[in-house]
């Protein structure tokens, strides 16, 4: 059972963590998001913002207006009312992300294929066949943690991270897949690249994706990639 009794921890003097579980699990994440929504709607006095993750919710509060104990009491009350919420009840959207796989766009595709005894085409087919859930946004602004990747293509991170992973790179790390919204250092196995812009600080909200959304990858050719990129 992935869901255990909820645990509360202080996070410094101005935040607390509501821990639903300690694993990557659909049910755990769905409860995190349901609690996030319930707290946002409840407008509990003193709460400033919530940060949903795979398995917990961080709550930033104003300690001059409320206390840790007061908030734990109020959130425990709320928690009871959301036990039955399912994933489908949340407002989610499905986004198709075009990806050019392999070659210079996906330098690790060959490796991923080789260690699993597959062809590159098979890896692409498996990676793009699944509908992935956005479990959380983190690491760098707009970076979606997507899951879960089939065991057939799940691959550990690079031993030594690359100094530069380009904007739009699509990678695999164990059973997670993700997209780099901006050039950054990183250790994920890069299998392709999307021309899609995932993060734009002058847009509201700045991130194209939010936790709970569904992502489906669509293989495209290099030519289509360049055409889509030119359109931006």
């Amino acid at each position: 059972m992935a869901i255990r009794p909820t645990r509360y921890f202080p996070f410094g003097d101005s935040a607390l963590v509501v821990e639903i579980g300690d694993v990557i699990d659909l049910e755990v994440n769905a409860k995190v998001l349901a609690l996030d929504q319930a707290i946002t709607q409840s407008k509990i006095f003193g709460i400033q913002e919530c940060v949903p993750t795979y398995r917990s919710l961080l709550i930033r509060y104003n300690p001059l207006k409320t206390t840790y104990e007061e908030l734990v009491f109020q959130i425990r009350n709320l928690e009871g009312s959301i036990q039955e919420v399912t994933v489908e009840e949340r407002e989610t959207k499905e986004i198709v992300v075009p990806v050019v796989y392999g070659g210079k766009y996906g330098p690790d595709l060959k490796y991923v294929a080789e260690i699993h005894g597959l062809t590159e085409e098979e890896v692409v087919r498996i990676h793009s066949a699944k509908r992935y859930r956005v479990y959380m946004i983190g690491f760098i602004a707009g970076f979606p943690y997507l899951g879960v990747v089939d065991d057939e293509i799940a691959t550990p991170r690079l031993k030594t991270p690359r100094i530069r992973v380009p904007e739009g790179a699509v990678g695999i790390a164990e059973k997670q897949t993700g997209i780099y919204p901006r050039e950054a250092p990183g250790g994920w196995r890069i299998i392709g690249r999307t021309p899609m812009k995932l993060f734009n600080p002058s847009r509201h909200p700045p991130s194209l994706l939010k936790p709970g959304d569904i992502v489906k990858f669509k293989p495209i050719t290099e030519r289509e990639f360049r055409a889509l990129k030119a359109k931006q």
Binding site: Q48, E49, C50, V51, P52, L58, R60, I137, G138, F139, I140, A141, G142, F143, F199, P201, P205, P206, S207, K210, P211
Partner: peptide, 10 residues
């Protein structure tokens, strides 16, 4: 910059 932690913005 507050309110955007959920989108990965520090």
């Amino acid at each position: 910059r507050y309110g955007y932690l959920r989108y990965g913005v520090p």
